[in-house]
Design a protein around this nucleic acid. Sequence first.
DNA 1: CTGAAAGCGCTTACAG
DNA 2: CTGAAAGCGCTTACAG
Lengths: 340, 340
Amino acid sequence: MVTMRDVAERAGVSTQTVSNVVSGGARVRPATEAKVRAAIAELGYVPNLVARSLSTGSTMTVGLFVPTTDGWFYSEIISEVEDILEQAGYHLLLCTTRLDGERARRQLAGLTSRSVDALLIAGDRDLIDHLPLLADARFPVALCAWETDAPDTFPVVTVDYEQAGYLAGRHLRELGHERVAVLASPAHTRRLDGFRRAFARDGLTVPDSAVQYVAEPTIDAAFAAANRALAADPELTAIFATYEVLVHGAMDAVQVSGRSIPGDVSVVGQDNVPKVSRSHPALTTVSFPRREMARQAIDVLLRAIAAGEAPGNFIQMLRPTLVVRDSSGPPPAARGTSAC
Amino acid sequence: MVTMRDVAERAGVSTQTVSNVVSGGARVRPATEAKVRAAIAELGYVPNLVARSLSTGSTMTVGLFVPTTDGWFYSEIISEVEDILEQAGYHLLLCTTRLDGERARRQLAGLTSRSVDALLIAGDRDLIDHLPLLADARFPVALCAWETDAPDTFPVVTVDYEQAGYLAGRHLRELGHERVAVLASPAHTRRLDGFRRAFARDGLTVPDSAVQYVAEPTIDAAFAAANRALAADPELTAIFATYEVLVHGAMDAVQVSGRSIPGDVSVVGQDNVPKVSRSHPALTTVSFPRREMARQAIDVLLRAIAAGEAPGNFIQMLRPTLVVRDSSGPPPAARGTSAC
DNA sequence: CTGAAAGCGCTTACAG
DNA sequence: CTGAAAGCGCTTACAG
């Protein structure tokens, strides 16, 4: 392996000078720089980043934890994070927990010490029990896309999920819906709370019996849950689904049952991913500022790295927005009334 | 920062012994190990992985390049790679090229030297011009999911894409289709070749005019291309789409035009991702062994690392399989003939 | 601007 | 099993 010293000897300069040329640090006389560059080219020298890291104490790497790479939500977070990091000259170390707490713990433990300059944790559930491991991490840590209660030791950049649920609920209420069903991930408690608040404001309740929890994130499981909901209350006029996969299952089930959307049943989702704008009918949903969230979370970390101190401890909530498309309308009764 | 030396002093042993305890290397007397572990706990010592890497020459990190994290194809490759790596105690450094050659070059250059122990490159197009940068990389490199001609310097684990296209074409031919259109990514030349071979076998040609290339991977672009195809030949009886997004655009366009699937037009895709099994109608497609491909590619790299030598130079093609569902059937004419 | 030296925190032969 | 020492390849004050 050719080292910086080899280059220095070849070019007839000190390693200090080679280092300056390579890292673009202190100014080097052009003639000297040319000599060094020539030596680098002749020898095929390539700097050893690990050695540099040991000296500088920085690996130029940021770790990212996500529960899964499947689906649009985390895919976009990964790609946004990677974009920003790449621009800033950082690398991305990706860890997937796959809803496995023990695996999460192992990965977290492996990141200790100086192997990353910062850590962003997106999503929750798997890692929450192991977060104390990071209590005295030597690098800044931030959380994003966190819906359940996060430990108050780290800054959080997230969506106002309660408001997202509320926007969906209020939309259905304004259309006049009263009998609704909810398809929810067990983790989406905030969205459900917000949804219920919209109904409560009008003195209505969304009973527990109207909520179908779907633990497994597959369309098949969502389809089955939607069928249960339709069987439990054949008169329902709307379904609220707390994320993409559940929406597809819900639309499937409604249409397979012979009902029309939104003629018989309105469907409202969460998270405006690209695909739903071309579903049939186009989906009414609540848009999450995913990319903005990722961007702000990374900014927090990058600033903490630059400042050499811990990031501030705050919780920042980005506002979701309602996107009305074709899958929601007045309930059949209301429509009938206004039509006749 | 507390170092190994601090622990050694505290425990009253040498750093050698601490190293043995931490790395689980040579055997240490139980009583000594207990003393060391106690010191580690009291001091909150956590080993510096960068220093270890500099000594051992291994970072326990494997790099992965993908064009994008969007869509099922690369998501699954990422998650499969991460699973295997995690089990083997390795970390994943993820690089997304986003179809940007210059960005790819930058990232590739950043990986030089000892910062990764191996590199897997999935997909093609962006990196192909910069692969020579890796000519004298000090770590093993492998390619996977490579459709276009790969440089013959690296081992390749890929799908037999030509066969995948052929299977789709033969299926349509066996159903009796003659007038077809193709929606293709410009990169999917092999699939197109194979598709054409199936028609050529029967003395038929798929003219260039029947092929719509879609460069932008969005459903909207696919939808527009499918509309062009339908306008160019209103009598066509089948559409072959070379990947997921194009399939959705094609089904959309066919249905919006008032035609039924497969009654009027059959649609056949590529890559059996979870979602298409629940599309309406369920999609006939060709299944790629994505996970198997990722697994074998990583195995090649891990073995090369373990052996301390370059991986073999071979090209391994995994076989795709046809999955017949509901989106394909005989063309209207043939059906009419057999019906009357 | 340049040279010689110390140090980043580990691992690994090498003697005891 | 343990101690003292060299070395991994950089960066960074410190004198010239």
